[in-house]
Design a binder for these strands. Structure first.
Lengths: 200, 200, 200, 200
DNA sequence: CATGAATGAGCATTCATTCAT
DNA sequence: CATGAATGAATGCTCATTCAT
């Protein structure tokens, strides 16, 4: 019984949040493939995995929740920065800069998100990722129409930029000395150079 | 007994190669997480998994072998193209172009490599990958010394280029309409723009 | 506390009836082995299984109630038909005919009953069933005494007739083309031939 | 690995047979719904359920094996008796008589078979049972064509006879005092009366 | 060299039941 | 009276690994 439909009580919200937090911890520390209900329950201080199944319809449901939560948080922070810009170029660079900034303050969340996204390729669960790629490609197309961007393939460029950003998330965990300032400046410059129309 | 140390007989070499081939098949067809000794043995026409454990110290050992073999093959093909170039810029663009070309002709191998790399993050097993990144950063540094490349952080750029290339491997499977020609041209242009010194 | 002893309030009667109805629905639609408190609660529009445990001592207790209710209903309908007959032979054939007729009008109930009976064999819970068999055997014995029935073993015959009737319940679900008329006529004839004293 | 395809070694045949025997024990003693791999392993003296999964593709596979084994054994004993008869009536009565005789000598096997058959209704696994019913109906049709049997619906009669025989298996476990001689004689007479053409 | 049976921990999931509120 | 969160054992099943032969 229970497991995920309809309104949720205050207590349950808490439990669910606690489980999601524990899941993120485990994903970050052991990697997505090694993330099991057993490990999450242990980390959450739960006595059995049944508890997790009680609150989530299954592993996919839990992971969807993790992804949804993190995307929502990121969208709030990054989306605000993008909307503040008027031009396509400004929005693209704001997207890159705000993404890296978000990695700085929430790098565990981003790490978890990347782990899940890459770990579930092909499971037909890559909805949010695909949507983000589509939005990015659309932004690039807009900039091309306005003459801000040069003539590249928007889909290829979207994938390229997105993967370049993944590099930050993946390498900043192991390489904490690397300065975020540097990553931010470098990526913004790189993406700008890769996309902008040459001045004549 | 046995399992992986010291000199190897002719027959054993053959068995190992056969197992590695089967492993690649399974990884490509079912994904890394679903790749088990059982499935590999089945695909290799072996009657039990004992055979695999006999020849490899464990799953990690087998996967290391797969990675090593593929990297060696790729290094031979891509490395040749790089060495044919004289300038750092020429070598960098040759690396990008040859990498995409290698994906085209050996996309199963690249696919397997990507699956393993993504599937094992956190296992501290990224030896060959790290070496490749270091080589790439070194090439970038050289180009900066000769004045061919602008002043960027070579390590950050190396990661960025490497991840951009990963995008090809990941997205070409699902997106077969996308032309290799396009990806190749777009990525070469993008990397060139991102790295080259502006003409004055 | 609570759970099944002593007098029951009006409200509680209603709740219990509601749960029993939901249980029958689930049994018919998913089969006895897949009938869980969770599924029954869901079907009954209850938010948790606790409600069911509160009203019934356990799964067995609930199932006993289902069985009891259905037997009571059947006894009323079938019993009336039997009592309308004067002779043992008339009563036996009325029992067979009325049973099949009851299957036709209440086949969901009969289906549930059969599922429970078959699903719980060995649980020593066959009270109503055993009572029915005893009543049937008694009727047969009566008919032998009056000379209407030939000389067979009444207990064996009771089991045989009872199981033949089970066949209707089991096969009519899958075989909806089969006409109830046919089953009724065939079974009445068969039972009559099997039991009656030969005319001399 | 392993699990059920291709040739089987001597040792494995033994293990499989041992597991099948244990499965029958558990089914007879606890009923089909309570028969789990855990219980079977325990009964077979196996240290884990993994052992069973190693030898059988799954629960269904194991149960299919049990059914197959028992049907094969029964077919040998009962089939021989049927083939010895020339007429349809002779064959039908031989089938009934030999079935009961088989119950006497192998009542645990029959009990297990009945448990499985009834316990898996609707799982699309009732192949052997359906085949038996079809064969029986065919025999009845033959007898009608030769004028040995009266004009009844052969499918309905097949189900009826089959269920009457199930009654023996189900009731002889609890009712061991009941004499097999009686059951045999009673059922043969009953079936004969139910089916035969009236002498004119 | 090679086999394949055996192991036992681990997996996600379902279940009836309990109990504080 | 009613709730619903929590429990923990049990389910079938997969896995990498071991080891006697």
């Amino acid at each position: 019984m229970r497991a995920n439909d309809g309104a949720r009580s205050f207590t349950e919200q808490g439990r669910r949040a606690q489980i999601v937090r524990a899941a993120i911890d485990v994903i970050v520390e052991r990697g997505y493939p090694s993330t099991s209900f057993g490990r999450i329950a242990e980390r959450a201080g739960l006595s059995s995995t049944g508890m997790i199944s009680y609150h989530f319809r299954g592993k996919d449901d839990l992971m969807d929740q993790v992804v949804t939560d993190i995307y929502a948080e990121a969208a709030e922070l990054v989306g605000g920065r993008i909307d503040a810009e008027q031009t396509a170029r400004g929005q693209l660079l704001a997207f890159v800069e705000a993404s890296v900034a978000y990695y700085r303050t929430h790098h565990r969340h981003v790490r978890a998100l990347t782990e899940i996204t890459l770990g579930r390729r092909g499971d037909d669960r890559s909805g949010p990722r695909d949507r983000e790629l589509a939005d990015l490609a659309e932004l690039l197309r807009t900039g091309q129409r306005t003459g801000e961007f040069r003539d590249f393939d928007p889909d290829v460029m979207a994938v390229t930029v997105r993967h370049a950003l993944d590099g930050v998330a993946l390498h900043l965990g192991a390489d904490t000395d690397r300065d975020f300032e540097t990553w931010s400046r470098e990526l913004v410059t790189t993406v700008d150079r890769a996309t902008r129309e040459d001045p004549t």
